[in-house]
Amino acid sequence: MSRTAYPFHSDDISLLARSLVKQWAEQTEPPGHVQMLNMLARAVGYQNFQHFRSEAEARPAIQLAPPPLVESAEPPSIGAAARKLLRHFDEHGRLHRWPSKFSEQGPCLWPIWARIPAHRTMTEREVNEYIKLGEVLGDHVLLRRELVNYKLLERTLDGREYRRLEQAPSAVGLDLIRHFASRV
C-alpha cells in the first residue's frame, strides 16, 4: 500500500512542544496513532488530522528540481530582463530577497502568483501557505500585501477571503514563470 507524504511545518517548535505536552496530559493513557496525528495537527492550528490532510492536498504539488550544474544552463527563451531578476531567487525558484528597485518588485511577484490556485476563494492562512511555498525571505506578509497592491490578488475588506486575480503576466513575469516551471 502506498502512502502519501504530507509536509509538516511548525513556525515555533517551542509552541508545538507545549501544545503536545498539554494535549498528552489530558489523555488517560498514551495516545494511539490517529490520536497522535490529531494532536500534531491541532498543535499547528488545524482542527484535526483530516483538516490538515485536506489543506495539504489542496496545496500545489510543486517540487522544483535541483539547480543545474552549469550556471548558464538556462532555457534559451528567457529574456535578459528576467535573467537579471534570477539573483532574487534561490536555486529552487523561491524568492530569497525582496528587490530594492521598484521596477524589479512587480515582476518578482509573478512566480509566487503562479503558485496560488486560480478560481478559488481562500482564507488568509491558505494564501499564506501558497506564498510561503514561493519564498524563503521570511516575510510572507509583505508579499501578500504586495500581491494585493499589484492587483494580482484580491481580498475582502475584512481580509477573510482571498482570490487570485486572473490576468496575463508581464513578459518578464512570464519568462520567470516558464523558467521555474521548466525546472520541475
Rank of each mutant, 00 (worst) to 15 (best):
S2A: 14
R3M: 12
Y6K: 09
Y6F: 14
Y6C: 13
P7C: 07
S10H: 12
D11F: 13
L15Y: 10
E26T: 08
M36V: 10
M39W: 07
R42G: 13
A43H: 02
A43V: 05
V44E: 06
Q47I: 08
Q50I: 13
H51A: 15
F52E: 03
F52V: 06
S54D: 09
E55N: 12
A56R: 07
E57G: 10
Q63L: 13
L64P: 12
A65D: 14
P67S: 11
P68V: 14
V70A: 15
E71T: 03
A73F: 07
E74H: 08
S77W: 08
I78N: 04
K84E: 12
R87S: 05
H88E: 00
W98L: 00
S100R: 10
E104Q: 06
P107H: 07
W110M: 06
I112P: 01
R115G: 09
A118E: 09
A118S: 12
H119I: 09
H119Y: 10
M122T: 01
M122D: 01
E126A: 12
G134R: 01
V136E: 05
G138R: 00
D139K: 02
V141L: 15
L142G: 00
L143P: 00
R145I: 01
R145S: 00
L147C: 01
N149D: 06
L152G: 02
E154G: 08
E154A: 12
R155V: 01
T156N: 01
L157G: 14
D158I: 05
R160I: 03
Y162E: 03
E166I: 13
A168P: 12
V172A: 05
L176G: 01
H179K: 05
